[in-house]
């Protein structure tokens, strides 16, 4: 898409706000609609739109495939790790009271934050992984065929 000047300029302007919005949806999910799934998708979209408008090489220089694969696993580990921490401190699996035994409500807040972070990281990683997997194959259709 080298010839689309407007698309390139607008994309450069938009990628930052899209990521900021993803972080907002992620960490403000306790108070407003949203949460890990939506935030993860929005964050992935920021990378995907960069990849579409510039090229796969450009976006893979920012976010290399090996990092994306590790991110998708890391999210599940954060989630399950939160559960294991509460289990090893003598509470039930994923009982967030363990994170702050004196103030169970604070424990719930920390737990929800951690768990949503795990979901967001995994969803970002998975969406970008799938995008990389499909677009790194040679397309049969040319740019003009659309």
């Amino acid at each position: 898409m080298r010839h689309h000047l407007i698309l390139r300029v607008i994309t450069k302007l938009l990628v930052g706000p899209i990521m900021l919005f993803a972080l907002y949806v992620q960490f403000h999910g306790d108070y407003s609609p949203g949460g890990g799934f939506q935030a993860g998708v929005i964050m992935a979209v920021a990378f995907i739109i960069y990849g579409i408008v510039f090229s796969l090489d450009h976006v893979q220089r920012v976010l290399p495939p090996w990092l994306v694969h590790k991110l998708s696993a890391l999210g599940v580990l954060i989630y399950a790790g939160t559960g294991l921490v509460s289990m090893f401190t003598g509470y039930a699996f994923l009982d967030y009271t363990a994170l702050s035994p004196d103030h169970p409500v604070h424990g719930q807040h920390y737990g929800i934050l951690l768990v949503e972070l795990g979901v967001g990281v995994t969803v970002t990683g998975v969406m970008v992984t799938i995008y990389y997997a499909f677009t790194s194959r040679t397309p049969i259709m040319s740019d003009e065929a659309w």
């Binding site: 999910g29 108070y31 609609p33 998708s72 999210g75 994923l94 929800i112 795990g118």
Partner: peptide, 27 residues
């Protein structure tokens, strides 16, 4: 839980196991 968005409370705390399963499915 004291979280204004009840959907988040149900999703991440009351139904934490289900969400862990969903994350595993996505992975």
């Amino acid at each position: 839980i004291d979280v204004p968005n009840v959907v988040t409370a149900v999703l991440a705390s009351y139904r934490g196991y289900d969400t862990l399963g969903e994350t595993a499915v996505v992975f």
